[in-house]
């Protein structure tokens, strides 16, 4: 799985992209966030409280209950502020 991070999420983690072998029991965006939260202090800071976090699966906005698979591109970011 390809993981992408943008804006303040990227800044808190220290990098914008990584690849992950998705564990078999992680089947939703929310479960992926919970899995990432356990990886260390910087991940916990981003992925513990999901309220300020948004996600996209394969470049489409996704909800935390939406499914994910190992071949997906998943992005995490704060609410958008363009325009």
């Amino acid at each position: 799985m390809r993981l992408l991070y943008f804006a303040s999420v990227r800044q808190k983690l220290g990098w914008g992209e990584e690849t992950l072998a998705l564990p078999g029991d992680v089947t939703t965006v929310g479960a992926l966030a919970a899995f990432l939260a356990a990886r260390g202090p910087s991940y916990a800071a981003v992925f513990t409280d999901l309220r300020p976090l948004r996600a996209a699966v394969n470049q489409t906005h996704a909800r935390f209950e939406d499914p994910v698979g190992d071949g997906d591109e998943v992005a995490f970011f704060p609410p958008v502020t363009g325009g």
Binding site: A7, A56, A75, F77, P78, V80, T81, G82, G83
Partner: peptide, 14 residues
Amino acid sequence: LIDHLKTKAPFWKE
């Protein structure tokens, strides 16, 4: 279009 852009298009301002 501008309302959609501001709330859905993945841009971030610093």
